[in-house]
Structures are given as structure tokens and as C-alpha cells.
Amino acid sequence: MPLPDLPPTTPTDEFVKGLWRENPVFVQVLGMCPVLAVSNSAVNALAMGLATTFVMLMSNLLVSSLRNFIPKQVRIASYILIIATFVTIVDYVIAAISLELYNALGAFISLIVVNCLILGRAEAFASKHGIGMAALDALGMGIGFTVALLCLGGVREILGSGSLFGVALFPEAFQPWVVMILPGGGFFTLAGWLLLINYLKERREAASVMLQETPE
């Protein structure tokens, strides 16, 4: 879904918009592949969210500071190169910190390169704004992305393995709903969250229409 170019706003606004109004997962539905694939536990979701945030922040900074030097014709290729460089760094850093996490996330760390969210922010925002704004935008979007991943990962881990962040929540007798950590569960959980958000939005719109129709 392409975003309209909004008029210049305050720095706080640029930061906050990624959290809710333009949340990358729940509203823009971007970067779905990692969202579904690594949200089978809360720890994986958090790691993926942080890695994506870092790559987005660094690439937004670099794209924004180079925005007057990159020729228009080769900009997409340059952005992808910049993103791929930072993803390679993250890939090696995660492998150095925790091999277990590295194996759990697998190829999806490398696949951050083709996360359309990051390329989208570079093209739609960082290439047109200053460094400060670009950093705030990346942080907001990154945190929004991480929170959304945690929402999915939390639900899937609680239902699918009966634990949260690896800590068991239920007594022994609990039968985990295994489907939730399998691929199908990823689709269902995301569909569930989207339904909830659509429902809330619809109710709010209905309420504001009611207010407008009954002038006091």
C-alpha cells in the first residue's frame, strides 16, 4: 500500500506515527514474511524486531545523508546495497552473540534485505528528509514493527507452547495448541489481530459519524 506524502510535521509526530497510525504490520501490512515466519516465540520475535530496527535506523541515516549524492536512476540499487551491507553486519553480530538464536532465525536474518518495509522507508521517507527526521521515522517504525511482532509472537507462544519468553505459564496438565506455532497458526494469529484492529477502527469511525450527524 503506497503511502501518501504527508506535509511536514513535528518530530514527535514522525516518531509516534509508526507506533499506531501507520503501524507497519497492522496498518500498512508490509514486511509480512519475517513477521509470520519468526513469530513462533516471543524471544525470536523480539530479536527479529530489534535487528530490523537497527538495519532500518542505519540505512535511513545513510540514505538520508547521501540523498543529494545518489543519482535518481540508480537510487533503488544503491539503497539495496546499503541495506545489504547493514544486514550482513547484523547477521555476523547475531551469530557472535547467540548461536542458538542465530539457528532459530535461520535465513530470515539475511532476508531482512528484501523486507519491503525497510526499502519503503528509505525510498518514501529518508530520501526526502533530513538526518534527524529520518532517524526518528526509522525508530518509530522499528518500534512499531517490534511491538507488532511481539503481539504475534506472544500470542503464538502462549497458545502453542504454553509459555512466554521460555517461562512456562500453565501447570503440567496444559495441552499446548501446537498448530499455533506451526505455519498455519501464524496466518490465523495475524488475521485475528487484523480483525480486532479493523473492528476497533470501524467502531471509532461509526462513533465519529454519529457525532457529526447529531449536532448539539
Binding site: 501490512v29 498448530v179 506451526l182 505455519p183 498455519g184 497458526g185 501464524g186 496466518f187 490465523f188 495475524l190 488475521a191 487484523l194 480483525l195 479493523n198 473492528y199 470501524e202
Partner: peptide, 22 residues
């Protein structure tokens, strides 16, 4: 219902397909 239309229903269908592929 309106809330289900669009991406939400596509994801539900994808989930069912995914279960079938299991």
C-alpha cells in the same frame, strides 16, 4: 462483515491452505 474483508480474509484462507499442506 466489513472488518473481515481484504487482508484479514486472505490471511484466514492462507492459514487454511497452510493447514491443508501440512
Amino acid at each position: 462483515p466489513n472488518a473481515v474483508q481484504g487482508t484479514a480474509v486472505a490471511l484466514l484462507v492462507a492459514g487454511i491452505l497452510s493447514l491443508a499442506f501440512m
